[in-house]
Amino acid sequence: MSSTARALAVTVADVIEVTPLVKRFEFVSTDGAPLPPFSGGAHVVVELPDGDHLRRNPYSLMSSPRDLSRYAISVRRDDGGRGGSRYLHEQVVPGMAMTISAPVNLFALDLRARKHLMIAGGIGITPFIAQIHQLSGGGAPFELHYKARSAPLAAYMDDLAARHPGAVHACCSDRGEDLDLDTLLTTQPLGTHLYVCGPERLIAGVTARAAALGWPARHVHVEHFAAPPPGLPFAVRLAASNLSITVRGEQSLLEAIEEAGVDAPYLCRGGACGQCETAVVACDGTLHHHDHWLTDAQRETGDRIMPCVSRFTGRLLTLDR
């Protein structure tokens, strides 16, 4: 029993350069029907058929949940990554047919909140844009703090600040600005929920301060956008399918399993949701866990792996798949 979101056929309606590093891609459904509804914080998994290598990358929806005529994602170009963002930036143009998944939300607003306090770092702004659209229709107040290297690189900052005066606060490091986290976290009304999306260091820093300042764990929500890191190629035996495969350097283990025609479940493809968890039958080498799902104790035993982000070095990894 496991789940994978269903596929949607879409057409690229627009590609817009937002900053020198960020492009926005807008999709309409190919059959002209409205796209499925979604909630703020949801992502879609975009299929990127780059030659004979099919990547599937998750991106947060940033369009309004109340506008189902098109979906929008924003992608930051990462030249050091596995090539998914480069493919989107260089190859994807209006009119192209693409396949995306139905939306899945692993970073939903807690609607019990009396107030939503959002902290974004860089391209981590995107889920918050959809959430702010959702909250603009009524609901608890929100406050967004947006950290970026510089104003020109802070995608959508001006637009957000103009539309939500007083609720959106910029924090640009080139202007010497830094987030006064302690003041922020000690001046929130009871019932506030905190949301963080951005680089790993930001998430770790904010969650640690929140815990030290007495914030309940269930009032703190984070979205890691861990992309699968590239690495060295490695050999895998898929025991249940009786197949031997090689995972290429720029490919994730999950992608290699899919390429071999083996059905594998997933939702987030970012090491967060637990759907793709796979049992390790034998491991002649070292597992490299990059997920946020397994506990330290589970990693210690080495009897399972999250193939969407994690890798292996050594002679042979045998999986129950």
Binding site: S3, R6, P36, F38, A102, V104
Partner: peptide
Amino acid sequence: FLTSIPQGQ
């Protein structure tokens, strides 16, 4: 299983 049920399925 239930917490990972996707929409439309």
